[in-house]
């Protein structure tokens, strides 16, 4: 388990093996800043790609008041696995903790990277599960509640789709 006091430290520029208040911004953006601070990445320097992707998704979604309320209302852990990468998302009263590895969880979701990215970008869960590309375990209702929290939103800052070069 992470050291909660370390997890409370503000994000420092220098490398740390503590926790990183993800994407912390300046007070000019209070909502975004608060949302980002609610995503607590454990050992950011050692975090795998999956955890970093989850951080981005959660931080963006928690800017939505309804989704933030939903996240803060949950008390559960979800184990997500993409290929051989594992992370555990723990929903607690102070925010969502992301740690690498498989910790005790109430629900599990796994699949290859492409299938999982399909789920978070809107392909839905049912089809990939039926096709066997995504596997779920534990409490399925919990997964349904969590899914909107890790779904990619249309980012306002996205450049329009253009040719790459």
């Amino acid at each position: 388990m992470p050291d909660r006091s370390t997890a409370r430290e503000p994000h420092a520029d220098e490398p740390s093996v503590g926790a990183d208040r993800a994407l912390a911004r300046r007070p000019a953006e209070p909502l975004a800043a608060r949302a980002a601070e609610l995503v607590i990445l454990h050992e950011p320097e050692r975090m795998n790609l999956l955890g970093l992707l989850m951080r981005g998704l959660l931080a963006a979604n928690l800017e939505e008041p309804a989704l933030r309320a939903r996240a803060l209302g949950l008390r559960a852990s979800i184990h997500v696995r993409a290929g051989d990468m594992h992370v555990t998302l723990r929903f607690a009263e102070d925010g969502v903790h992301i740690s690498a590895g498989a910790e005790a969880s109430n629900a599990r979701v796994s699949g290859d990277m492409k299938a999982l990215l399909g789920v978070v970008t809107g392909a839905g869960m049912i089809g990939p599960v039926l096709r066997g590309r995504v596997r779920i375990g534990g409490n399925p209702f919990l997964l349904l509640r969590v899914l909107p929290l890790i779904r990619a939103r249309a980012h306002a800052s996205l450049p329009p789709a253009k040719e790459p070069s």
Binding site: L52, L53, K114, L117, G118, A152, L158, P159, K162, P164
Partner: peptide, 25 residues
Amino acid sequence: ERIEEPLDVATLLRVNPALGAFAEF
């Protein structure tokens, strides 16, 4: 060898705009 299926850059961009560094040159 283990190799994932190709992912469209547009999908990655939706997941994390920071990956958009490779969307356009």
